[in-house]
């Protein structure tokens, strides 16, 4: 009787070690590699915008395509901080010994997408200028296999957890509408 119980326990343990453990390692690996792809894609996208000063639907679609080729879904957040030197200029004009502060105002994903969405077949670009700050943050929104397995084994999942994420940003160094 005792032997039977042990055999059952061993079979269950064996099943876990033989199937679940390798599956978890493999899916973890997949996530790592996906992370690599996502990070490269985001960095390339941001650096392209930073050095050309031009954001177009083509470039954005390119990013979305690369991301979706990893088999996950992502939440892409973009942010442009537009440099406004006018308040600083006015401060200095009011008092000659003061350097006024520069002000940034911010455009977020939905506003940016509104600007670059082609209307009636005409492609549009968002032109940035030298001194603006552009940043992108990407997180996965679906539950990857490794997340599912982990939550099955030691249920640590919540709504906000993501395993694949990348952030990149920096100062724009070129004028987008130069001629």
């Amino acid at each position: 009787m005792g032997d039977t119980l042990i055999v059952v326990v061993v079979i269950i343990l064996g099943a876990i070690i033989l199937f679940v453990f390798p599956l978890m390692t493999m899916s973890d690996n997949t996530d790592d590699i996906t992370q690599l792809t996502v990070e490269t894609a985001v960095t390339e996208f941001v650096d392209d915008i930073r050095t050309t000063g031009r954001l177009s639907m083509d470039k954005y679609s390119g990013l979305v395509e690369t991301l979706s080729s990893t088999g996950n879904t992502y939440d892409i957040e973009m942010q442009v901080q537009v440099l406004d030197e006018n308040p600083g200029k006015k401060t200095t004009q009011a008092e000659a010994t003061k350097i006024g502060e520069n002000v940034y105002y911010t455009m977020y994903t939905s506003q940016i997408l509104d600007t670059i969405n082609p209307s009636s077949g005409v492609t549009k670009t968002l032109a940035l200028k030298e001194g603006d700050i552009f940043s992108v943050s990407v997180k996965n929104t679906n539950t990857t296999l490794s997340q599912q397995l982990k939550s099955f084994l030691y249920s640590v999942t919540g709504n906000d957890t993501y395993v694949i994420g990348a952030e990149h940003g920096g100062i724009v160094t070129a004028n987008g509408s130069g001629n």
Binding site: D84, E85, N86, K90, T92, Q93, A127, K129
Partner: peptide, 23 residues
């Protein structure tokens, strides 16, 4: 002391952001 040779401020639709310029 600081000064600007030209006191005008930048136009919001062509200098600060470039939403209204011929590309």
């Amino acid at each position: 002391t600081y000064y600007y040779p030209h006191k005008e401020t930048g136009c919001y639709t062509s200098i600060v952001n470039q939403s209204n310029v011929e590309d």
